[in-house]
Write a protein that binds this DNA or RNA. Sequence first.
DNA 1: GAATTGGCGTTATATTATAACAGTACACTT
DNA 2: AAGTGTACTGTTATAATATAACGCCAATTC
Lengths: 167, 167
Amino acid sequence: MHTQANAFNSDAFNTSHNHEHCVNAALLSAKTLCRDRGQRLTPVRELVLRLIWQSHQPLGAYELLPQLAEAGFNSAPPTVYRALDFLQELGLIHRIASMNAFIGCSHPDEAHPNAFMICRECKSAAELDTAELKSALSAAAGALGFQIEQESVELMGLCQHCREAAK
Amino acid sequence: MHTQANAFNSDAFNTSHNHEHCVNAALLSAKTLCRDRGQRLTPVRELVLRLIWQSHQPLGAYELLPQLAEAGFNSAPPTVYRALDFLQELGLIHRIASMNAFIGCSHPDEAHPNAFMICRECKSAAELDTAELKSALSAAAGALGFQIEQESVELMGLCQHCREAAK
DNA sequence: GAATTGGCGTTATATTATAACAGTACACTT
DNA sequence: AAGTGTACTGTTATAATATAACGCCAATTC
Ligand SMILES: [Zn+2]
Ligand SMILES: [Zn+2]
Ligand SMILES: [Zn+2]
Ligand SMILES: [Zn+2]
């Protein structure tokens, strides 16, 4: 079963759901967010967002290009990077620095750290719930006088699914 | 004052010390570690390690090339990347993915997560003490059935030094 | 000292990302 | 509706980061 509520619960590792629902919910939410902020979710941007959301695995910019071409858009790097920058600035996607790849944000309306679990087996990535994590980070850094402005947490490992499959 | 003990206390933000001591201690420690593991700290590798340690700021591979050339080594990318890979595998340096850059490890003898604070002002980076952090991460990820194998934490912000200077 | 291994030099190329400028669509004013 | 400015996109070129592949030499092993 799959409700809008859990479309945003970061459970990308559970692949046994109708992911099209997630994608549609994310697009709807993105449209609202853009309207609220006076930004335009143009066709290229919307397509890029859809393509990224369709994948549970972070996608590289150059993986998107052929799909843009297929949809009749210009498929030169600047096109996709511009869309990615826009989506990132609005908090609709995150960049996974260790992979040079991008993935949809599961709760773009609230400010939160960039924190992901990435499965080495299925390559899926899911956002980490970060209320407690954030305070642990602040405490650790604050003890050394460091004031955090932006977090990036990327945890590599095995998701539950792949762990069970490996047994 | 500056003892070997605090050469490894991660306080890269405190620039008011004789950093040459840190560098020498790191090189000495690297030599021991290599000998123990039957690895060779060749001249190129040693120079790369020294260059990286000399900087409190993470250095990119291509920043090292001219300095290798100056020292009479080949200065093509593969040379420096091979040295960097070697040093990384031995845990002597860390890669900061969000910056495509490398920095010396302040405690290469003990296994630990890749966790850094990076100052946006002075660009210095310092390792985070991670005993508690690690358990916070494991707890957060474990609650979702994710088994962490490798951590990467990169915190951007302002170090104490720059924070005080900004007042 | 022959064979094997590991490290380096070298050339070429892959991958990721941005600069710069021209044209086009949209939003806003009048 | 026409004019005007702005934001978005197309296009070409190039920068920045990283790796593949191969051959040579030096060290280690047998
Ligand atoms: Zn998010
Ligand atoms: Zn998995
Ligand atoms: Zn370290
Ligand atoms: Zn600073």
